[in-house]
Computed example of a mutant assay.
Amino acid sequence: LFGGLINDIKRKKLWYLSDVKDGFALQTVASVVFLYFACLTPIITFGGLLGEATQFRLGAIESLLAGAVCGIIYGLFSGQPLTILGSTGPVLVFETILFGFCRDHGLDYLPFRLWIGMWTALILVVLVALDASVLVCYITRFTEENFATLISLIFMYKAIEKVRDFYKAIEK
């Protein structure tokens, strides 16, 4: 159990102190500033859209906090500490659909969202424990392109829906 995670930490533990020391070197300042803004911009942008989609139950502040916590945890335990984390289009689409589902069925959004997060965390811990990352090699471009197409179609539909609502408002 947890063999992959343990091996990753063993391989990386030799570099933890070096990573921290290198972070204070002058030549890394440009990279740090770039990554800061590269992570901050989508978090704020999608956080604002998320706030609008969930009637401000979740928004930019919550997205910033989540990005900071997840970024620190990911940086400590990952093999790639420079991966950019933040809110994305699929997250926004998921939260919008989830909020609509909760509203239509009379459910409280935040507790429902909490339990989704708890179950997701449990499933991820089980996947890490069983070294399921070896299955990533079976994800093909076909799977990736289908997912990207779905997200694109959802965004186009939402854009057309906004334009339609705008013209309905003008007619009134």
Rank of each mutant, 00 (worst) to 15 (best):
P81N: 01
P81C: 00
P81E: 00
P81A: 00
L82S: 10
T83P: 01
I84D: 01
I84E: 04
I84G: 01
L85G: 04
L85D: 01
L85C: 06
G86M: 09
G86W: 04
S87G: 13
T88N: 11
T88L: 00
G89W: 03
P90I: 10
P90Q: 08
V91G: 07
V91N: 04
V91P: 01
V91E: 01
V93Q: 02
V93R: 01
F94V: 08
F94T: 09
F94H: 02
E95G: 02
E95I: 04
E95P: 00
T96C: 05
T96P: 02
T96I: 04
I97H: 00
I97D: 02
L98E: 03
L98S: 10
L98N: 03
F99D: 04
F99Q: 05
F99C: 09
F99V: 09
F99T: 06
F99G: 06
G100C: 07
F101P: 02
F101K: 05
C102A: 11
R103V: 12
R103H: 08
D104N: 09
H105W: 05
H105T: 13
H105L: 10
H105G: 00
H105D: 00
G106F: 09
L107I: 14
L107T: 03
L107F: 12
D108W: 03
D108H: 10
Y109I: 02
L110K: 07
L110Y: 01
P111C: 08
P111H: 06
P111Q: 05
F112Y: 12
L114E: 05
W115A: 03
W115T: 09
I116V: 12
G117K: 08
W119F: 15
T120I: 06
T120P: 01
A121Y: 08
L122W: 06
L124F: 12
L124S: 11
L124I: 11
V125E: 05
V125P: 02
V126F: 14
V126A: 14
L127I: 07
V128I: 12
L130Y: 08
L130R: 05
D131N: 11
D131E: 11
A132K: 09
A132D: 04
A132V: 13
A132G: 15
S133D: 12
V134N: 08
L135M: 14
V136C: 09
V136F: 15
Y138Q: 05
Y138S: 08
Y138T: 04
I139H: 07
I139M: 13
T140V: 06
T140F: 10
R141T: 09
R141G: 04
R141Y: 12
F142D: 06
T143K: 05
E145K: 15
N146Y: 11
F147I: 14
F147E: 03
A148I: 06
A148S: 12
A148K: 13
T149N: 13
L150G: 13
S152W: 10
S152F: 14
L153C: 15
L153S: 13
I154N: 05
F155S: 11
F155D: 03
